[in-house]
Computed example of a mutant assay.
Amino acid sequence: MSNDLSIRDLSVAYGPVMALHGVSFDVPEGRIAALVGSNGAGKSTVLKAICGMVAPASGTISVGGTAIPARPGAALRQGVALSPEGRRLFGRLSVEENLRMGAYAVPRAELDPGVMERVYGYFPRLRERRRQMAGSLSGGEQQMCAIGRALMAQPRVLLLDEPSLGIAPIIVAELGRIIAEISRDLGMTVLLVEQNAQMALSLAATGVVLETGRVVLTGTGEELLQSPEVRAAYLGY
């Protein structure tokens, strides 16, 4: 079963305002794709459409060639998990309780007994703090917990929404390394949505630049890092 993510001619409207205009791109199986752009470009709307939080005006979203219905929960049932912007942890629950919440939709018979240990392997700090309330963690540790919670769903496709937001640069670098390891080790298809274009494109096999709801540039991560347009607009040089 293929785990590629395909988005074709996706348009989304909020009332009379079009947020996405015919967006199309692919995330190849087992690879990282970076979706970059400024605030208001439509990056989060793409994720909301994938997850069924907004209904497309037109277009299709599919995983492994199977279309995802435009309703909440459908993407998760097809193996797509989201680590949301702002982490959205249950602050009064422990780290381990938050992680277990990520597996709530996995049938007991299908739950890999080693998935928790795998998450702790990628994020040793979570193991050290597994009894600690999630709300008392640092920002970087909370982001690790949010990604770990998404991995507990045993997804085929992992969506990461602004994982670097509000995180110290040294932790951003650590998170980038771990995201690359997860994709490589697990054959995980990853869509990384970021304002931090340098971080995202340096990890990505494929890069997509959105502006005002339209795809304006695509290429390999390295090609976009070298693009004069990307450098001027997003990298500051």
Score class of each variant (00 low, 15 high):
Val63Ser: 02
Val63Phe: 09
Gly64Tyr: 09
Gly64Gln: 06
Gly65Glu: 06
Gly65Phe: 07
Gly65Thr: 09
Thr66Asp: 13
Thr66Asn: 14
Thr66Tyr: 10
Thr66His: 13
Ala67Gly: 04
Ala67Trp: 05
Ile68Tyr: 05
Ile68Arg: 01
Ile68Cys: 05
Ile68Glu: 01
Ile68Gln: 00
Pro69Lys: 04
Ala70Val: 04
Ala70Asp: 04
Arg71Ala: 13
Arg71Phe: 10
Pro72Gly: 02
Gly73Phe: 06
Gly73Asn: 01
Gly73Ile: 10
Gly73Leu: 07
Ala74Gln: 02
Ala75Lys: 01
Leu76Lys: 14
Arg77Asn: 12
Arg77Phe: 06
Arg77Glu: 13
Arg77Pro: 01
Gln78Trp: 06
Gln78Lys: 11
Gly79Pro: 02
Gly79Glu: 10
Gly79Ala: 12
Ala81Ser: 11
Ala81Met: 03
Leu82Asn: 01
Ser83Trp: 12
Ser83Gln: 08
Ser83Cys: 14
Glu85Trp: 01
Glu85Pro: 01
Glu85Ser: 02
Glu85Phe: 02
Gly86Leu: 07
Gly86Trp: 05
Arg87Gln: 00
Arg88Lys: 15
Arg88Glu: 15
Arg88His: 15
Phe90Cys: 09
Phe90Leu: 15
Gly91Val: 12
Arg92Gly: 12
Arg92Leu: 13
Arg92Gln: 15
Leu93Pro: 00
Val95Ala: 08
Val95Trp: 01
Glu96Asn: 04
Asn98Leu: 08
Leu99Val: 03
Leu99Glu: 01
Arg100Phe: 10
Arg100Met: 14
Met101Ser: 08
Met101Asp: 06
Gly102Arg: 00
Ala103Pro: 02
Ala103Gly: 06
Val106Arg: 07
Val106Phe: 00
Val106Cys: 03
Val106Ser: 02
Val106Asn: 03
Pro107Trp: 03
Pro107Gly: 02
Arg108Gln: 13
Arg108Asn: 04
Ala109Asp: 15
Glu110Pro: 00
Leu111Arg: 14
Leu111Ser: 04
Pro113Met: 05
Pro113Lys: 04
Pro113Gln: 06
Pro113Ala: 03
Val115Leu: 12
Met116Tyr: 09
Met116Ala: 14
Glu117Asp: 15
Val119Ala: 09
Val119Asn: 03
Val119Pro: 01
Val119Ser: 05
Tyr120Met: 11
Tyr120Asp: 05
Gly121Met: 08
Gly121Leu: 05
Gly121Cys: 08
Tyr122Val: 09
Phe123Ala: 03
Phe123Gln: 02
Phe123Leu: 05
Arg125Ala: 14
Leu126His: 01
Glu128Arg: 13
Glu128Leu: 14
Arg129Lys: 14
Arg129Glu: 13
Arg129Pro: 00
Arg130Asn: 07
Arg131Asp: 15
Gln132His: 11
Gln132Trp: 02
Gln132Glu: 08
Met133Tyr: 15
Met133Asp: 11
Met133Val: 11
Ala134Val: 08
Ala134Pro: 03
Ala134His: 05
Gly135Asp: 07
Gly135Arg: 02
Ser136Gly: 14
Ser136Glu: 14
Leu137Trp: 00
Ser138Thr: 12
Gly139Gln: 06
Gly140Glu: 04
Gly140Ser: 08
Glu141Asp: 09
Gln142Lys: 07
Gln142Ile: 11
Gln142Met: 13
Gln143Arg: 04
Gln143Ile: 07
Gln143Trp: 05
Met144Pro: 00
Met144Ala: 05
Cys145Ser: 12
Ile147Phe: 06
Ile147Arg: 01
Ile147Pro: 00
Gly148Arg: 02
Gly148Ala: 09
Arg149Asp: 03
Arg149Ser: 06
Ala150Met: 04
